[in-house]
Amino acid sequence: MSAILEIKDLYASVEGTEILKGLNLTLNTGEIHAIMGPNGAGKSTLGNVIAGRDGYTVTAGEVLFKGKDLLQLDTEERACEGVFLAFQYPVEIPGVNNTYFLRAALNAQRAYRGEAPMDAAAFLRLVREKLKILDLKDDLLKRAVNVGFSGGEKKRNEIFQMAVLEPTLAILDETDSGLDIDALRAVAAGVNALRDAGRAMLVITHYQRLLDYIVPDVVHVLADGKIVRSGGAELALQLEEKGYTWLQQEDQQVLESS
């Protein structure tokens, strides 16, 4: 078992404000980790730092992806290396056809790996196969990227892209938010279909419910820019029941008894 992602004592700021404050996290191959935590804790910031968004400055620490320094790479190089971020708020791109976009992305990644571009027919077969898993409406493919998609359709579209691109590391930022039960199952099916010994996934969520479908190996709590607690799947249940204040109270007790 080797590490896919190693984050060591990571500090990052956005527009001069420090958001990540000494974050440590290791994902091994085959693992799914869940990250929970209060609003504004820095969960999406972590996703964007890993994906390489401009304006997110790492001030200390390191991020290794398959042992390589990820922070040296451009956003698109990270994607081509196998990093995928499913956005909390997927971006609408008027005028860019969804299928065209996805084929351009796949072929960019293939070119990076030295593979020949996939022709239209082969791509269509691939798309059909992945569509079945996700139960996504055909006509969404013919429309502009995310334009006019419902909240749930946007999230399904993220997972559909993930299914086609088959990343080594997928970060799912609140992909379950705003999904109806069927959509949640479809998204979970997409994730589980990709679950294998060679990959890892980081699932950011506010709800324990998702974790009934995607059973995580580890659950972390991210608060105020760092991981404050890690545990098994049962941690999510406890959090659901007692809320984040429970953690703070526990910490307080630990502090007092010491």
Binding site: A51, I93, V96, L102, A108, V145, L165
Partner: peptide, 23 residues
């Protein structure tokens, strides 16, 4: 934001800019 989205899928800046101009 759109350019960032394209880049997170592996599309480089020149191609991304061209796609957005074309769009």
């Amino acid at each position: 934001d759109a350019l960032y989205y394209l880049r997170t899928r592996g599309i480089d800046v020149p191609l991304g800019r061209k796609m957005l101009m074309r769009a």
